[in-house]
Amino acid sequence: MNTLYTDILIIGAGAAGMAAVLAAEKKGYQKILLAERKETPGGVLLQCTHRGFGLGYFREDLTGIEYADRFRRMLEKSCAKILNRTMVLQLYQDRTALLAGKDGLTRVCFEKCIMATGCRERTIQSLPVGGTRPSGIMTCGTAQKLMNIDKLEIGDEIVILGTGDVGQIVARDLIKKGRKVLAMIEQNDVPGGLKRNQEQCLKAFSIPVMLKTQITGICGSGRIEGVIVRHLDTEAEEFLPCRTLLTAIGMIPEREAAGKLLEGASLPDWFYLVGNCDYVHDIVDSVTADAFKLESVL
């Protein structure tokens, strides 16, 4: 097994990880290793073809891809060594990490470690939902990736569970492509998401939102054929036919690779969580800002 030595190991080259590199460099670190499981840095930004990024940091209205590109260019000029297609499997108390990637297994010995692994989407499977488990159900993030990166179609006659930002943006993208978004299901009495998304998505595209409702069942053998929607006020249930179900029901910080490091009362003094793996931020600019704060604590 290869062994690499570095001052700082940064895990994840999304918005937080890329900014963390710049912060560490500014602080004077010269041996920085950035591990990214995808082919290139950029993270989830690369599937965001819509605008609304950079208003805080660049004072410009950029797409997610443009926002990522600006950081990728800064990253190219940095001294960081980037390991693409490499995933950190586990971190250990003795300041080592086990990485798997295209070059095989690598052991990294580091002085400090910054975890910038972002968050993952909650799935409908974690909710008490009855019925069958057919195809045609995925998270909005997965749908966005399939549509915007792989340029694939996901299906039609779509119901979206949850009215969070990703849900609204994906709903808009789908309508723009001529797909029918039959309903967005929201358990609260107001839709979720940022005000600007409510304006630019829900309102501008007249997306039907069913407030105070939940999905309690999934129907269909093979591909999904419909959902059972419960109205929370009346407790009445109705069958809503659909052929695709997308979910936007929240994000969970992803930091499983840290394992036992998270079990103590406080984090080790050489370990930092930044961006969405610390807590889920509303906008990417605040993730970037969060990572730049590292300069003062590293």
């Binding site: 939902v129 129907c219 093979g222 419909g226």
Partner: peptide, 28 residues
């Protein structure tokens, strides 16, 4: 039991592998 479940989940939670939401909550 093996019929397609279109619209019948609440009426007959019996398509081949249909879960019951009450059952899930009970297990929790």
């Amino acid at each position: 039991c093996t019929a397609a479940a279109s619209g019948c989940c609440t009426a007959a939670p019996g398509s081949e592998t249909a879960a019951d939401v009450g059952g899930i909550l009970e297990l929790q």
